[in-house]
Amino acid sequence: MGQHLRVNLTAEEHDELRALIDRGRSPARTVTRARILLMADRSQGKRHTYQDIGRVLYCHPDRISRVCRRYVLEGLRAALYERPRTGAPPKVTGDIEAQLVFLACSDPPDDRKRWTLRLLAEQMVVLGHIDSLSNVTVYDRLKKTKSSLGR
């Protein structure tokens, strides 16, 4: 198991964490992280192990270790708040969704009675609105429009 990093909060940080907990408006994860830091604080003379803190706060010791490590290496803000998550931007934007709805409301091709999800996805690619599109994405986007094409 890794080395325990010593958390030594300043008086200002201690007061800030207490205020964050007492305010009652912060997300539960942030409050739990604040409680972890307060219990792991060695400047108050108390020495709690990660297992003790975990039992009191119903957290796994690994989580406590991560919070303490982030505090020591990156500071209070990094320990309390999550980093922004990276991720691909959504493929279907508002104007592409509008094109999809417009296509779904139009008449289907001559050899078909109605549009299928797969046919809509293929037609969106053929028309050049988007590079690739799955039928599941078409289903999800049309479902969010709350329109019923069957009526």
Score class of each variant (00 low, 15 high):
Ile96Cys: 02
Asp131Cys: 13
Glu12Cys: 05
Leu5Phe: 02
Lys113Pro: 04
Gly24Glu: 01
Asn135Ile: 02
Lys91Gly: 03
Ser132Ala: 12
Asn8Ser: 13
Arg29Val: 04
Asp110Phe: 14
Glu97His: 14
Thr86Asp: 02
Ala28Phe: 08
Glu74Asn: 09
Ala78Lys: 14
Ser147Pro: 03
Lys143Ile: 00
Leu120Gly: 04
Val67Thr: 08
Pro84Gln: 10
Met39Trp: 07
Arg25Glu: 15
Asp41Arg: 01
Ala79Arg: 06
Leu20Lys: 05
Thr145Met: 05
Glu13Asp: 03
Trp115Met: 13
His48Tyr: 12
Trp115Leu: 09
Arg70Glu: 10
Arg55Cys: 08
Arg29Lys: 14
Ser106Tyr: 01
Leu127His: 08
Val67Ala: 01
Ser147Tyr: 14
Leu9Ile: 03
Tyr71Gln: 07
Glu12Trp: 10
Ala40His: 00
Asp62His: 07
Leu103Glu: 12
Leu20Gly: 02
Leu9Asp: 00
Thr145Pro: 05
Val126Lys: 14
Leu57Tyr: 01
Ala34Tyr: 00
Thr10Pro: 00
Val56Ser: 09
Thr93Asp: 15
Glu12Lys: 15
Ala121Ser: 07
Asp52Pro: 00
Ile21Cys: 09
Asp131Asn: 07
Ile96Asn: 06
Leu20Asp: 06
Arg141Trp: 02
Thr30Leu: 06
Lys143His: 15
Ala34Asn: 01
Val138Arg: 01
Leu73Val: 12
Arg63Thr: 10
Trp115Cys: 05
Arg151Asn: 12
Gln51Thr: 13
Cys59Pro: 02
Asp52Lys: 11
Thr49Asn: 04
Pro109Gly: 06
Val92Thr: 09
Tyr58Pro: 00
Val72Gly: 01
Leu73Glu: 12
Val125Met: 09
Arg29Asp: 14
Leu133Gly: 02
Pro84Arg: 15
Gly45Val: 00
Leu149Tyr: 10
Pro61Ile: 03
Asp107Gly: 01
Lys143Tyr: 12
Leu142His: 08
Leu37Phe: 02
Ala79His: 09
Ala88Gln: 07
Arg83Lys: 08
Ser65Lys: 10
Arg70His: 00
Asp95Ile: 14
Leu133Phe: 07
His14Val: 01
Arg29Leu: 13
His48Lys: 09
Lys46His: 10
Arg114Met: 11
Arg114Pro: 02
Arg112Lys: 14
Pro89Gln: 10
Ala11Glu: 11
Ser43His: 08
Asp111Met: 08
Leu119Met: 03
Arg114Ile: 10
Thr86Leu: 11
Val126Asn: 14
Glu16Trp: 05
Asp22Ser: 14
Val92Arg: 11
Leu119Asp: 11
Asp131His: 13
Lys113Gly: 03
Leu57Lys: 14
Lys143Thr: 09
Leu57Phe: 03
Ile130Val: 15
Cys68Ser: 14
Ser132Tyr: 14
Asp41Ile: 05
Gly75Tyr: 05
Glu13Arg: 03
His129Ser: 08
Ser43Asn: 13
Ile130Phe: 04
Pro109Ala: 07
Arg25Phe: 03
Thr116Gln: 08
Pro27Val: 09
Glu13Gln: 15
Arg25Ser: 13
Glu16Tyr: 07
Met124Asp: 06
Gln3Ala: 10
Lys144Ala: 12
Glu122Ile: 06
Arg151Ile: 11
Cys59Gly: 02
Ser147Gln: 15
Leu127Pro: 07
Val7Lys: 00
Ala88Val: 07
Arg23Asp: 15
Leu119Trp: 10
Ala104His: 04
Ala28Cys: 02
Arg35Gly: 08
Ala34His: 02
Asp52Met: 15
Ser65Gly: 14
His14Ala: 12
Leu20Gln: 03
Ala28Pro: 11
